[in-house]
Write a protein that binds this DNA or RNA. Structure first.
Lengths: 254, 254
DNA sequence: CGTGTTCTTGACTTGGCTCAAGATCGGTGG
DNA sequence: CCACCGATCTTGAGCCAAGTCAAGAACACG
């Protein structure tokens, strides 16, 4: 269930953290090495299981190695709002370094491998490498920037625009960590999950997706998404990638 | 229009920053002093004017000394989403330290005095006092936490719940920086602004507010808000203050 | 091949929107 | 001190985007 990572294990997966950080900031060779050498605990989670729970006081942060994860909040009567999605390379609860009580939960959307990094190891590393401290701060700031973009979607976009916007965002984020092949990527979410992320009902999400498929903007079969007409999708969403603060966007996706 | 702050000027207003940070973290005497001694540039803004604009590359952060400020984003067709409100003591664009391009704007909602703090001064101070660096990081993390709470409101709460939730939040935040007298505070926003913050129309906000007044949960005349029935408002909003990460909440407001 | 999950469809409902007009408020200048 | 004017608030009527409910189809997986 839970064990320390051995040297040379999961190297490509761990590099995704480096790649993620390098998509938003500069790292020195030393910093890259420090990240790869960070002692972590491996844990696996099945789809639908919570990785961290609202109210917890975590002692470590979880890096997603494989799989897919969401963060969500529940109202007392069970209404759910998904506030973020996280592909591999992300650390969804980085904030727990400073905010001791979790105000939301993190859940696996598919079978997920996580590397738990004890807070003390992170603290020690950021003391030694202030550059990494700033990289992590920057990462949380971009997190917040994405929240703002979602707020605009939730508050002021129509259902069609919201779905298109989410698809644009996820396309870029998967591409940024090297998990897209051209315009195709794997995102293991149900229409219900999309609904809870976009403040819609599952029925309505279904109808919107049918429209997008009918108009041949996307293909979405099982967990595989392909964007057929990036320009049209971008226009529909009024998508402006500035808020992702990704450097060196792939040319295709400008 | 714009000038350097003189010693001994605006001391109570500048202390609000200290007070704000102390509502969420511990400061040493040295850190408090460093904050008070920080060289800044004073600027005044009239209601409705932008303080920072989307697309800008600011070289300083703006501390709100007096007045009231919002952050907002616009869609190409003019739809507006307000993503945050900031009473005095807040630094709404603290993120510009790391994210060079503003992805949203900051606007004055009433005549507002700001203290612009050059990035280099902030950098120097946080190098000297790592505790302040962590305080500022923490502040941006709480910012993000508030965004998440707003996302839940925008995505999953009814109009009545949204309005009640916003009122609960603002009551606590004004109280935390000493700008509330009991359950009364001054918040210079129009019903239109509330609508743009909550993803509603101004007409509907008007009707909801009438309900809240009829049920004697609140009084709202001009810019003065008084919460008459904190318990009932809290229940209606299903308000849980955890997400504000405020230490030592006033007992009244538990 | 059976079973639970996810997707799809239709029929109906509704919360909140739009439009438009009138009332009220607060600040300004004479 | 009052008259005026633009901004804000209020009200009513009609509408529509998206929700709810419920049942059936397709799918994935053991």
């Amino acid at each position: 269930m839970e064990r320390a990572l051995q040297n040379m294990e999961h190297v490509p997966e761990r590099q995704r953290l480096v790649r993620k950080l390098e998509s938003i900031t500069d790292l020195t060779e030393e910093e890259r090495q420090a990240l790869m050498d960070l002692p972590v605990i491996l844990r696996e989670f099945d789809a639908g299981h919570d990785i961290v729970r609202s109210g917890d006081h975590p002692q470590s942060c979880c890096l997603i190695l494989t799989g897919f994860v969401c963060r969500y909040m529940l109202l007392p009567d069970g209404r759910r709002q998904i506030v973020a999605f996280h592909p591999p390379g992300d650390i969804p609860d980085l904030q727990s370094l400073h905010l001791k009580t979790m105000d939301h939960s993190v859940a696996a959307m598919a079978r997920t491998t996580t590397a738990f990094i004890p807070h003390e190891n992170l603290q020690r590393m950021t003391q030694r490498f202030p550059g990494l401290l700033h990289a992590f701060w920057r990462e949380t700031l971009i997190d917040a920037s994405v929240f703002r973009a979602w707020m605009v979607a939730l508050g002021r976009r129509t259902a069609h625009e919201r779905v298109a916007h989410l698809l644009c965002e996820m396309t870029l984020r998967f591409a940024a960590v090297g998990l897209a092949e051209g315009m195709t990527y794997q995102m293991p979410v149900t229409q219900n999950d999309i609904a809870d992320a976009l403040g819609l009902s599952n029925v309505h999400v279904n109808r919107v997706l049918q429209d997008l498929r009918r108009d041949e903007l996307i293909v979405w079969r099982r967990n595989t998404i392909t964007v057929l007409q990036w320009g049209a999708l971008k226009d529909l969403a009024a998508f402006d990638p500035t808020y992702l603060h990704i450097r060196n966007l792939p040319g295709l996706l400008q």
